[in-house]
């Protein structure tokens, strides 16, 4: 589909979480002093009995969520992706994923999206380190229309889920009526020569790349991989069928994220694949998001060039 107006995915997330918490009183939100940024403030403001401020202590927050889940609650744990996935990795591994508890980790301001704060607050590793944990489901919805569907899907899963969210306004690239099924990639725009595999912010960038390729006589399909894990191999092959090559594009390290996940999924009968992502490096501050995306090579031009090279 065509890109429409921009909307903020975290605003959509806060409202979706509020709806989930209203319909199920066992849904609770925990935050580590970032409830405005993560939008868990919607729960604090509207359903204060279902909100727990855990102070600036992410490790404790995750283990507290494990305890809540062990008593039948469905905790949504919030912080910036780097502090939600990275800092309490051991608590997620030992206390949440090993016992397969019903805890949802919401990594906000993922990728470069917290552009001003620089390397410490940007996160290109979360999909890799969440994906490697047994029992964990990893979602990276592409826009403000899909985010509420991802949150609802996460709530419906009896087990740990990591949701990766962008901080900034993103173009709407999915339809209200589009289905959201965990593990099943969806075609955003048809094309036959090459498949551009995207999630998060790269969905809109991938659609722009498709136009560039079209002008060059290359027909590109854009495929939404808002599930990183689990990937259903049959569904992945089906959505990629007919394409001669793939380009994966992610606002994440090229090590361990979407590109790695797709190549692992197809490893028995691989397809030629070019990976666009952040090289093995850290972020930095900038005055706007677009400047950083360009600096780190997450542009429509870079995706189009990768497609030409891999074909």
């Amino acid at each position: 589909m065509e890109k429409k107006q921009e909307k903020n995915p975290r605003t959509a997330y806060g409202l979706a979480l509020l709806e989930l918490a209203r319909s199920n009183p066992n849904v609770v939100a925990l935050d580590a002093d970032l409830c405005g940024s993560t939008q868990s403030v919607q729960i604090e403001n509207n359903l204060p009995a279902q909100f727990f401020e855990m102070g600036i202590g992410e490790a404790n927050m995750v283990s507290v969520a494990a305890g809540l889940a062990l008593c039948g609650k469905i905790p949504f744990v919030h912080s910036f992706a780097v502090f939600a996935a990275g800092r309490p990795f051991d608590q997620i591994r030992q206390g949440v994923c090993l016992p397969n508890l019903n805890v949802k980790i919401v990594g906000s301001s993922a990728g470069l999206s917290d552009f001003g704060d620089g390397a410490t607050h940007q996160c290109f590793e979360d999909m890799a380190i969440m994906r490697v944990l047994p029992h964990m489901t990893v979602l990276a919805p592409v826009d403000a229309v899909e985010v509420p569907k991802a949150a609802a899907a996460a709530a419906a899963i009896e087990g740990p889920v990591y949701i990766r969210l962008n901080r900034n306004d993103l173009p709407i690239v999915t339809e209200d009526a589009a289905p959201f099924e965990v593990g099943k990639p969806l075609v955003l725009a048809e094309g036959k020569d090459v498949a551009l595999c995207v999630n998060g912010v790269t969905a809109g960038i991938g659609l722009d790349a498709r136009k560039i390729l079209e002008n060059q006589g290359i027909s590109a399909r854009v495929v939404n991989f808002s599930t990183i894990k689990p990937l259903d191999e049959a569904a992945v092959r089906s959505v990629l069928s007919g394409a001669r090559a793939l380009v994966t594009a992610e606002e994440h390290s090229v090590i361990g994220g979407l590109g790695s996940a797709i190549m692992e999924c197809l490893s028995k009968k691989p397809m030629p694949t070019a990976r666009v992502g952040i090289a093995d490096r850290y972020g930095q501050s900038a005055h706007n998001y677009g400047q950083l995306l360009e600096h780190y090579g997450l542009t429509a031009e870079a995706i189009a060039k990768a497609a030409e090279e891999v074909l």
Partner: peptide
């Protein structure tokens, strides 16, 4: 009642259980 072994996490899990008990 809980997985432990990586030291330092059990009291936090207990806090979560105690919070749930209070909430309910």
């Amino acid at each position: 009642e809980a997985n432990t072994g990586s030291l330092g996490q059990g009291l936090s899990i207990g806090v979560g259980m105690a919070l749930a008990g209070k909430a309910d």
